[in-house]
Amino acid sequence: MSGVSEGTVAAPAAAVPPAARTRGLRKVYRGTVAVDSVDLEVPTGAVLGMLGPNGSGKTTTIRMLLGLVTPTAGEVELLGQKMPDGAALALPEVGALVEGPGFHPFLSGRENLMRVAAAEPLLASARIPGAVADALERVGLTRAAGRRYRGYSLGMKQRLGLASALLVPRRFVILDEPTNGLDPAGTREVRAVIADLHAAGTTVLVSSHLLAEVEATCTHVAVLNQGTVVAQGELAALLEAGSANLLVTTPEVTRAVEALRDHRIPARAVPDGLRVDLTATTAPQVVETLVHAGVPVHEVRRQRTGLEDLFARLTEDTNVIEDAALDDLATLIPEDAR
């Protein structure tokens, strides 16, 4: 109803099946629940940013999407194939960079890519050298291609990982923390690559713990915390969603709250002031009411938007959010957006 997953760039959701979908996904590692009841949907053609602090289950979810890990419970569908059993059908068209780049330190960048290319089902043997050269070019590693991987900087390693995901034209590319260790220029290049992929109609799933990165590149967002998806939908919708709040700084909190209540405006005392819910009212109205009541107003500011607020809390202080955030989330994000 909220239109969060509708109106995507390509086509109505009903016609094109999602590039990936999970239902009730759960993974338990030796008694520790890594991921629980994850219902994720990656619409075809979207660039989905998977946000979440470290340990929120992003990588585990991605590993289950790729069939690397068998879920304890739940279902995974990748390009219409049940994973992990459909891996042979789905994975050739999926490029992935998971858990950082993994290459042989004693081989050069090119040799490492040749080895990955040899395993790519969609690459004919004759096309391997060309595909490797193209992928190296695309991530700007051509000059360093002959050097041993051992001597690569973190950024170069990351680029090589990206190159291996781009060896073959893909329908779906999954990038786990692709900008890790990259300098600002490298980050921009990764964004450009993602934009290219998006333009070419490739579905992209990018995981990150940086909101800025997601904001810059993604059409869709899914937020994970403590092993569950706490929010997902179109980026724009999520950014707008959620009731905005007004933070008012005043020394006379009790009088302020009473004054607002008299006008049926919900408000809550917070340190140094109060927080006013703006769902049923507007900021000027609040200020007017307070001034009329003779409450000294030192400062009035709008609280950050839904996603921003949510994600800032997730990433800035994981401990504090543990109890509070999840409760707040229920009110912050419209039910049908999740």
């Binding site: 891996a87 994975l91 858990e99 395993a119 790519e120």
Partner: peptide, 14 residues
């Protein structure tokens, strides 16, 4: 340990 087996599994090599 090197993470290289993942590259083969996601290629995918059965």
């Amino acid at each position: 340990a090197h993470g290289t087996l993942r590259n083969l599994l996601t290629a995918p090599v059965g």
